[in-house]
Amino acid sequence: MDLRGKVALVTGGSSGIGSSICLRLGELGASVMVGYRTRGEPAGEVANRIVTEHGVEAEPCELDVRDYEQVTRIVNGIIKARGRIDILVNNAGVGVEGAVTPARPVEEWVDVIHTNLIGSFFCIKAVSLHMLLARKGSIVNVSSVAGMVGIPGLSSYSASKAGLIGLTKSLSKEFAPYKVRVNAVAPGYTSETGMVERIGEEDICSIRERIPLRRLARRDEIAETVAYLSSDSTSYVTGQTLVVDGGLTA
């Protein structure tokens, strides 16, 4: 795979799967805008690693995906400075655990949808005009196996990730005439991520037993799949969700 000369914007790029995605895209030669909302210092460290280790341009980019005006302003600024955005990876996401009960605040549930689903839509809407006019581009939405199977206590997260899969399918057909591809990646349980770190060791052992490959995913394995969909190696792939879960949902 070769991404030299391409410009990528990755939301939620300061840590976890997002940072691994940024590093892999940079390793393949892309200039990377490392999107973050509050973690500016870690985002700067990711950008510095890309510059130092791979000799390509990278910089942190403060971006609250819930704010459409800010998203549009940032995207237009990148276009003005870099000339284009070739790759958009919608990775920013949050999850709030808790059953749906009358006592839980509505705002908690809605905020997850606003960030994970509507935030991704905002980024796509801001970037799409430039991609459609250029008649090229790759959009990769980071969904989850939670969007394919129900997980108790994570209804808002599951709903948001299922929505991303539906959004991917619909937009892939809308954008196909303009040669812009839209795909998704659905990771399973992935080590060194916030969600897994909140799970107790006993439950992790139980999860491993249910995974045919008998282990959690590594972050670089998710990043490799995102890079694959971002590249011209998948020039005839659009509207698809690649599940990376060790066979959990097979």
Rank of each mutant, 00 (worst) to 15 (best):
L132A: 13
D203K: 13
M131A: 06
T193A: 14
P177D: 08
L154V: 04
E209F: 01
E192K: 09
A217E: 13
G137T: 10
T190F: 14
K136A: 13
H130Q: 12
I139G: 03
R135L: 08
R208L: 11
Y189L: 06
A146Y: 03
E197V: 05
K169N: 00
C205W: 06
D232A: 10
C123S: 05
S206N: 15
M148D: 04
S144V: 01
A176C: 05
K179W: 14
D220C: 12
A134Q: 13
I204G: 06
E209C: 00
D232Y: 09
M131D: 11
S138W: 05
S156I: 09
S231V: 02
S155Y: 02
R181F: 11
S160M: 13
P177K: 09
S231N: 05
A217N: 15
E209A: 01
K169G: 00
G150F: 04
M148H: 07
I165F: 01
L216G: 13
V140D: 03
E197N: 07
A184D: 08
R181G: 11
F175W: 13
G200H: 00
T190R: 04
A126E: 12
V196W: 05
L154A: 01
V196Y: 06
T193L: 12
Y228E: 00
E174P: 03
I207Y: 05
A227R: 04
S172K: 14
V127N: 04
L213R: 12
M195E: 08
G147A: 06
L164M: 09
L129E: 12
L171W: 00
E209R: 15
S128E: 13
A227C: 15
V182N: 02
G153L: 14
V142D: 05
E197K: 12
